[in-house]
Design a protein around this nucleic acid. Sequence first.
DNA 1: TCGATATTCAACCGTTCGGTTGACGATTGG
DNA 2: CCAATCGTCAACCGAACGGTTGAATATCGA
Lengths: 107, 107
Amino acid sequence: MESKLDLVFSALADPTRRAILTMLLEDDMAVTDVAEPFDISLAAISKHLAILSRAGLISQERRGRVKWCKLEPEALRPASVWMQAFGQFDEIDLDAFERFLERELDP
Amino acid sequence: MESKLDLVFSALADPTRRAILTMLLEDDMAVTDVAEPFDISLAAISKHLAILSRAGLISQERRGRVKWCKLEPEALRPASVWMQAFGQFDEIDLDAFERFLERELDP
DNA sequence: TCGATATTCAACCGTTCGGTTGACGATTGG
DNA sequence: CCAATCGTCAACCGAACGGTTGAATATCGA
C-alpha cells in the first residue's frame, strides 16, 4: 500500500504540477484553461491533474462538458507537519516565499 | 536545469529515504548502520543516500573507511516555505506529527 | 441536427527509478 | 602482511514517469 505522503511529495516533485497548484491559488479553473500556459499537450496536462487528484491536492468536478479543478490545500497538511519537525520553521519567511513563488511562475 | 525544489520533493517522495532522515534526527550515522534496519542491499542504500545528498538534505564526510551521514534540516526550508503558503499551517500540530512519525518508523 | 469544444483513453516511446548482483578500491586491525 | 570491513561502481532488470499522437466520448450551441 502506498502512503499518502508518498503521493503528495511525488506530486509536488514536478515543476509543472507545482505551477498548476500555484495557478489554482487564484481561482478554480477548467482543464483547458489550466493547460493554456504550458507547451505540452492537453493529454499530458490531464495526466498531471489526475496525479494531483490522486494525491488529494485538487478536486475535480464535472459540470457539463467542463471539468473544474479546485485546489485542496488541506491535503498538504500531513506533508507540511512532517517537514516542520526537521527544521523548526515556526515563523514563515514571507519574503523568501515570494521569491520562490516568482521562480515557480516564471519559466 | 533542475530546481532544488524538484530535488527535495522527489527525495522526500520515497518512504525509505524519509525513514533514513528520521533515523538521522537521532544522531549522525555510518552508511552501514543506516542500512542495517532495511531489507535491501547496501548498494541500494548507498544510492538513496546519494539522492538525499544531491538534494542537500544530508551531508557526508568520510573519516577513514567510514562515511558519516549528517542530517541537514536547513535544506528543507525552501520546500517548507513553499508548502506553507497553500495551507496557512501557522501552528504546528505536534500530536499529528507524532502519529505520522510512528507511521514512518514502523514498517 | 451537426459541427465545434472539452476531456479522456489507448498505445507507444525514451528515460528515470528502485532494486539486484558481483567486482572493485580503500582502509583497518590483528 | 593479510584478511576482513566499508562503501561505491557497473551492468542489468522490470516498472513507473512524462511525454506524444490519434481515436473516442460527451456535451454545447447555433
